[in-house]
């Protein structure tokens, strides 16, 4: 609209310069007020990042969390894809169970944490329940949508050529819904990653200060907040969590383009 075009060099340098100035102002402000240790500072974040990485603390916590995310994600897919495909193909099932599923989907997964702890214990399985719960609904929604959008003529053609129901599912329904299933998987994984942090934070609050071993990034954050009181580390964890979210999303998008070049999204 107004203003001249921003050149390519400026497009990179301008935000970088602003970021540097902001960091410098932030650093100076923290030093001037002698609030190091109370407030995070850029150099402090870098320092704790280096320490946490070289000592392996962050790697261990991250791999614990990521492992649970992947298991919960797999459980969500194993339950969600068949359910979604069934709902998407049989309209009566959809009408009967959609209200129930919508109701369950509206419960924030983290709200289940007390029941999950009661059923599965604080050791990590409770967080797993929350993650699987978070992952299952994107799978259901996208699988049912995919099944509904599969070209009916293809199904009819397969039937006319004598394909049984199982053959129709295997050769028409599944291949036709793969692009949308992929989208469902991407949303499910992103949601699973957010909810593992929430679940581990909630579990961490329960067991903080009891000297238990740290199991995941969420528990590590609670321990850092209440026991070690290292504000710089908290910011570092946050950045790492964001980086993982970014990598998950970018990686799955690239995988989708590579595996399914015909599907745009």
């Amino acid at each position: 609209m107004s203003g001249s075009e921003v050149g390519r060099g400026a497009r990179v340098l301008l935000p970088l310069a602003v970021a540097l100035v902001l960091c410098a102002v932030w650093e100076v402000a923290v030093r001037m007020t002698h609030s190091h240790g109370l407030l995070p500072s850029p150099t402090g974040v870098v320092e704790s990042g280096a320490i946490l990485t070289s000592s392996g603390v962050i790697v261990e916590a991250m791999s614990g969390s990521l492992k649970r995310v992947l298991i919960g994600f797999a459980i969500g897919g194993a339950l969600g894809i068949p359910t979604g495909l069934a709902i998407g193909t049989v309209p009566a099932l959809d009408r009967a169970f959609r209200p129930v599923l919508d109701g369950l989907r509206s419960i924030a997964p983290i709200a289940w944490i007390p029941m999950a702890i009661l059923w599965l214990g604080v050791r990590g399985d409770a967080a797993l329940f929350v993650v699987a719960y978070a992952a299952v609904f994107p799978f259901i929604v996208n699988a049912s949508l995919a099944a509904r959008l599969v070209d009916r003529r293809l199904v009819a053609a397969a039937r006319a050529l004598g394909a049984g129901p199982w053959t129709v599912v295997r050769t028409v329904l599944l291949p036709g819904s793969i692009p949308m299933l992929f989208t469902g998987a991407r949303i499910a994984l992103a949601f699973a990653w957010a909810s593992i942090i929430a679940a581990e934070l909630a579990i961490g609050i329960k067991i903080a200060g009891q000297g238990r071993s740290v199991a995941g990034i969420g528990q590590l954050m609670v321990e850092t907040l209440y026991v070690r009181r290292d504000v710089d580390a908290l910011v570092f964890y946050m950045l790492v969590i964001g980086a993982v979210s970014f990598l998950i999303d970018a990686g799955l998008r690239r995988l989708q383009r590579w595996m399914l070049p015909w599907s745009d999204r």
Partner: peptide
């Protein structure tokens, strides 16, 4: 826009959940 866009892209993947301790 050239300044704010990269910041938004940087912060967007950080879910609100990750902000809880801070």
């Amino acid at each position: 826009a050239a300044v704010i866009d990269p910041f938004a892209e940087f912060l967007r993947p950080i879910s609100p959940i990750a902000w809880i301790p801070l």
